[in-house]
């Protein structure tokens, strides 16, 4: 009884999961594979040798909308949600409204959302003003930084895409598509309760 139920939900799950991938938006010029490999906690293979943390990776330095250059290391010790997005992507905007609320609610516990806008600066600035984004937005020219999203574990380049980094720099969770409250509660909230 349970066995056949399991099989049928797995089958439907595979179909639906492929659907959600296609429903996302790809920055990549090449086509998206029908079923991309799962991305989740520990899904990024650690290289042999030193542990793979956000700090052992190649650092990026990008201009922020505040006019200052930023590196991710500035927020060392916080729980970081690095969010790849673009202004033309509707689900990115929906998600941003939630991120604004998360940032507001969990700032004191050390949550730091960092938006990485793969778009033209003026458009990013307009969205920041219109949606009243309360966390830093870094500007990454999509032509020059097309590989950045892949380096952070998203081979298909689909946005929105979010990387969750704990206080020690461990990449705890990656999420393709809009990250809603239930995924936040399950994957980010537990990291916030433990003070550094």
């Amino acid at each position: 009884m349970f066995r056949s139920g399991t099989l049928s939900f797995l089958f439907v799950a595979a179909v639906l999961a492929a659907g959600t991938t296609v429903a996302g938006v790809s920055l990549a010029a090449e086509s998206i594979p029908a079923r991309t490999p799962p991305q989740a906690a520990g899904a990024m293979n650690p290289p042999a040798g030193p542990p793979d943390t956000a700090w052992s990776r190649e650092a990026f330095s990008l201009p922020g909308l505040d006019g200052v250059k930023h590196t991710l290391a500035e927020w060392k010790g916080k729980v970081i949600m690095l969010n790849f997005w673009a202004t033309w992507c509707p689900s990115c905007q929906t998600e941003i409204s939630d991120f604004i609320a998360f940032q507001e609610e969990y700032r004191a516990q050390g949550l730091q959302v960092v938006g990485l806008g793969l778009d033209v600066e003026q458009k990013l600035r307009n969205v920041q003003r219109t949606l009243e984004i309360n966390y830093p937005i870094l500007v990454a020219d999509p032509a020059r930084h097309a590989n950045l999203i892949r380096q952070w574990g998203n081979s298909s380049g689909v946005i929105p895409y979010t990387v969750v980094i704990d206080r020690e720099g461990q990449i705890i969770y990656t999420h393709r598509g809009p990250l809603h409250r239930d995924a936040f509660d399950e994957n980010v909230l537990p990291l916030l309760s433990g003070k550094h």
Binding site: F9, A17, G42, Y173
Partner: peptide
């Protein structure tokens, strides 16, 4: 628990599996 085991942390897959169960 069974679904989580099957999906091995694939968030999209788990969400879809839950949705499929509920739909049935």
């Amino acid at each position: 628990a069974e679904m989580k085991q099957q999906m091995k942390g694939d968030a999209d897959g788990l969400a879809a599996a839950k949705a499929a169960y509920i739909s049935n």
